[in-house]
């Protein structure tokens, strides 16, 4: 098994075989990331393609100090956001008149859902909401950072997150995946 260091070294030298190995290793995981940001598979594969081109074009700048997977992932996330801003009608339109100050109830249990189903639900969110939820939950950005990245206000970021959560909950309820604690207990 060839280690990341050797693959990265090969990629820095422009070796096609190393590029292919790197792609084979990381593409499935990165497609998982892209699918969360995009509204369908075609878009996700477009982003994956653009992202990997950026990875190979800039791999010389990567220093082995941090996690390589983290570095690729950041590129994918940035590419996804840029792609959505550029190619998709970027929308923060209100969804289902959900109040902006929605708070999750504490006595709720969410049943496990398959990743494919959850991706589908996530993809049904408007792009703007999806970006906020991805950046907040998966990438761990604060609302202030999200506001800077997406060019929105901090309060918009917060309200989008609340609304997106409520939207997801509603979708999961439709699939009977949400139980209140009292129901769950009995």
């Amino acid at each position: 098994m060839i280690g990341d260091d050797k693959i990265i070294e090969g990629c820095k030298k422009g070796k096609k075989r190393s590029q292919n190995r790197l792609y084979e290793k990381y593409a499935p995981g990165m497609l998982g990331v892209c699918l969360r940001y995009c509204s369908n598979m075609t878009e996700a594969e477009d982003v994956l393609q653009e992202g990997f081109i950026k990875v190979f074009m800039h791999i010389r700048n990567f220093r082995s100090e941090g996690s390589f997977e983290g570095w690729i992932r950041r590129i994918m996330v940035n590419t996804a956001i840029t792609y959505i801003k550029k190619n998709v009608k970027y929308s923060y339109e209100d969804i289902d008149n959900i109040p902006a100050d929605y708070q999750e109830e504490e006595d709720v249990v969410y049943s496990p859902v398959s990743p494919e189903v959850l991706i589908k639900i996530l993809q049904s969110l408007p792009d703007g909401y999806r970006n906020v939820i991805n950046l907040y939950i998966f990438e761990g950005y604060a609302h202030k950072e999200i506001a800077e990245i997406l060019g929105i206000s901090e309060s918009t970021s917060k309200s989008q997150l609340s609304k997106a959560k409520k939207f997801l909950r509603n979708k999961l309820e439709e699939k009977n995946k949400v139980l209140t604690t009292s129901t769950a207990n009995g």
């Binding site: 998982g32 969410y110 990743p115």
Partner: peptide, 28 residues
């Protein structure tokens, strides 16, 4: 089960992998 949406999303989708179609590598 999960106690909140965040845990559900992270627990289910963090590390989720899907094989891209071969045309992606060809295009890259």
């Amino acid at each position: 089960g999960f106690n909140n949406i965040e845990d559900l999303l992270k627990g289910t989708l963090d590390g989720y992998k899907k094989q891209p179609s071969p045309k992606v590598w060809k295009a890259v």
